[in-house]
């Protein structure tokens, strides 16, 4: 069953929509410690573009663009990065925030109370947000690609 996908208008629009969607997903991930959001919603936002590609390009066309093995590797790398960041503070405890309140990299001291928000604060929280964002994006994309590529195979 050859699957050509939808018309050229839909393909072009889905290519154009890659940039705002990925930028918005990265914004949600990077500001996870300042605004509502974080690694999970940001990864889910970035995974919507994969769903759009699957619908627009069809089963065979999207197989050339999206590689399952790369996504599988990214999933493992995200989880390993998260575990490594958790283990990096093992000198105090597991999951100790060893970067917070040091005054240098990601260690801006924040007093209690409302403030406009400083991007380089939060210790290891932004880094963990990035790791979890990579993992969720890769896992959701891989799940969608696998489930989509099996559907319609009535011959097997």
């Amino acid at each position: 069953m050859s699957d050509e996908g939808m018309s050229v208008i839909v393909k072009t629009v889905s290519c154009v929509l890659v940039v705002p969607t990925v930028v918005f997903g990265l914004y949600v991930i990077m500001h996870g410690h300042l605004t509502p959001g974080g690694g999970f919603p940001g990864g889910a936002v970035m995974a919507t573009i994969v769903a759009l590609f699957l619908v627009a390009y069809g089963k065979d066309g999207s197989r050339k663009i999206l590689k399952k093995d790369c996504l599988s590797a990214a999933e493992s790398i995200g989880l390993l990065l998260f575990a490594a960041l958790a283990f990096a503070g093992i000198s105090v405890t597991f999951f100790s925030n060893f970067l917070a309140n040091t005054g240098n990299w990601f260690g801006t001291v924040i007093p209690f109370g409302p403030n406009p928000g400083y991007l380089v604060s939060g210790g290891v929280l932004p880094l963990m947000n990035i790791a979890v964002g990579i993992e969720v994006f890769a896992a959701l994309s891989a799940i969608m690609i696998l489930m989509f590529s099996y559907s319609g195979d009535d011959s097997k």
């Binding site: 410690h33 974080g38 925030n97 924040i110 939060g122």
Partner: peptide, 14 residues
């Protein structure tokens, strides 16, 4: 003061 994060939910989560 302890984690330096404005988002308390993220501080609890991570």
């Amino acid at each position: 003061a302890e984690t330096g994060s404005n988002n308390i939910v993220a501080a609890v989560l991570f």
